[in-house]
Computed example of a mutant assay.
Amino acid sequence: CRHRSPFLVLLVATEPADVAGRYAIRQTWGNESSVPGFTILRLFLLGVHPRFEAELRPVLEEESQLFGDILQQDFLDTYNNLTLKTLMGMEWETKHCPTYVVKADRDVFLNLDYLARRFLVPPKRDFMTGYVYRNTGPLRHKSYK
């Protein structure tokens, strides 16, 4: 964010081995130029592959040099560590590029144009959106995620 000041930072959680998925997102809903008039910065959040870290390292380094949108830290990229992945992205955004941020998973499709124009214009302060679950509590049964 030193060279440009984005309106929106898009944090996308992906697995280290999902090179094709990241490419597809770059070409579709995660394209940084998909919303005319708005500067978007896209970052993919990754941990370390639990079994193929050594094999994937050169692939990820090449992808990062080519696109400049990989953010990776040294923790195992597992379902139980999704919280670490989210915190990594939020920490980076807070330190380097404080602005609007959207965190998404790779298996969703976002309409960034609608999001930017419907929710973020005019600019808002301390704005958060999502789905509110009312009259419920945590699900603690082992069969639930």
Rank of each mutant, 00 (worst) to 15 (best):
R2I: 06
H3L: 13
P6Y: 02
P6A: 02
L8Y: 00
V9D: 01
L10Y: 05
L10N: 07
L11I: 04
V12C: 01
T14Y: 00
T14K: 06
E15Y: 08
E15W: 06
P16Y: 07
A17P: 02
D18P: 00
D18I: 03
A20M: 09
A20G: 09
R22E: 04
R22N: 06
A24F: 06
A24K: 10
I25H: 05
I25N: 00
Q27E: 11
Q27N: 09
Q27M: 02
W29E: 06
S33A: 03
P36M: 07
P36K: 05
G37P: 07
L41W: 08
L41E: 12
R42G: 03
L43T: 00
L46F: 08
V48F: 03
V48R: 10
H49S: 09
R51T: 07
L56T: 06
R57C: 07
R57E: 13
P58F: 15
L60Q: 11
E62A: 15
E62V: 12
S64H: 13
Q65N: 15
Q65I: 02
Q65C: 11
L66T: 15
L66V: 15
G68C: 15
I70N: 01
I70P: 00
L71E: 05
Q72E: 14
Q72K: 14
Q73V: 01
T78I: 10
L82Q: 08
L82F: 13
L84Y: 11
L84Q: 14
K85Q: 07
K85M: 03
K85V: 01
T86Y: 00
M88D: 05
M90A: 08
W92R: 11
W92D: 13
E93F: 03
E93N: 03
E93T: 14
T94D: 05
T94A: 06
H96T: 14
C97L: 06
P98R: 12
P98D: 13
Y100C: 11
V101I: 10
V102S: 04
K103N: 09
A104P: 02
A104W: 08
R106V: 02
R106W: 04
D107P: 05
D107A: 11
F109D: 07
L110I: 15
L110D: 12
L115G: 07
L115P: 00
L115I: 14
R118S: 08
R118Y: 07
V121P: 02
V121I: 13
K124L: 07
K124G: 06
D126K: 01
F127H: 11
F127M: 10
M128A: 10
M128K: 13
G130K: 02
Y131H: 10
Y131C: 05
V132T: 09
R134N: 09
T136M: 01
G137C: 09
G137H: 10
P138R: 13
P138I: 11
L139A: 10
R140D: 01
H141L: 11
K142D: 05
S143R: 09
Y144F: 14
Y144L: 04
